[in-house]
Amino acid sequence: MDLNLFVWRQKRPDEKGAMERYEAEDISPDMSFLEMLDVVNEELIKRGMEPIAFDHDCREGICGMCSQVINGIPHGPREKTTACQLHMRNFKDGDTIYIEPFRAKAFPVIKDLIIDRSALDRIIQAGGYISAHTGGVPDANTILIPKEDADTAMDAAECIGCGACVAACPNGSAMLFTAAKVSHLAVLPQGKIEAARRVCVMTEAMLKEGFGNCGNHYECQAACPKGIKVKFIAKLNREYIKAQIGIK
């Protein structure tokens, strides 16, 4: 199939960018979206032009590196699918596709479709962990965890840290990302001990990084490629209130 692309090009962080038009020809439905961009890039390089810069690594939907808004939707039209896992059979011959970087105040563009997401790392640095030392921990089976709790923790822990939730949110909030980590650790017995402090410092770090407040729009859940549920935001809020009034 042949496609019409409009792609965000921006040379540097401080430069103004613009959408530019490209043609993608002879695209097979079996290609992934990024493989389609590879084809476009090979063409550009052969014509001595600069290829489109975009982040990617695993190309199997798990590293969280790819970060494109496709036709207005972070990671594109298919639900629970990262850009790298989106395949061209979801498009048809003659389609026009708009490709932009994830946009948010806390995610400055570095080049073309590449953004700076280090703010998410700093939220984790603030306290998104259990302070276990290496060594000196008890036998794994001395900590029993009800299966439902382990499953809930895993549901939250599946977050790949891509930032699509932020890009989808009208307020540029990182609430779903933060809530996923807070919830993952707070439902586990090992994580309960630091839960109160954790929710406070992570929320604080989130606001300090310039992410907006959660306005209950739930666009984040719709965009999340891992199906992280907004119920975890409710869980974060409960944990936050508990921490504020000092309930253990």
Binding site: T134, P138, A140, I143, A150, Q190
Partner: peptide
């Protein structure tokens, strides 16, 4: 064996059976 202990202490949500064991 120590690795599994370490990871559980960190909160790695390994699969569990219905009695809560790994």
């Amino acid at each position: 064996n120590s690795i599994i202990d370490q990871c559980v202490a960190q909160g790695v949500p390994f699969a569990r059976d219905y009695a809560g064991y790994l």
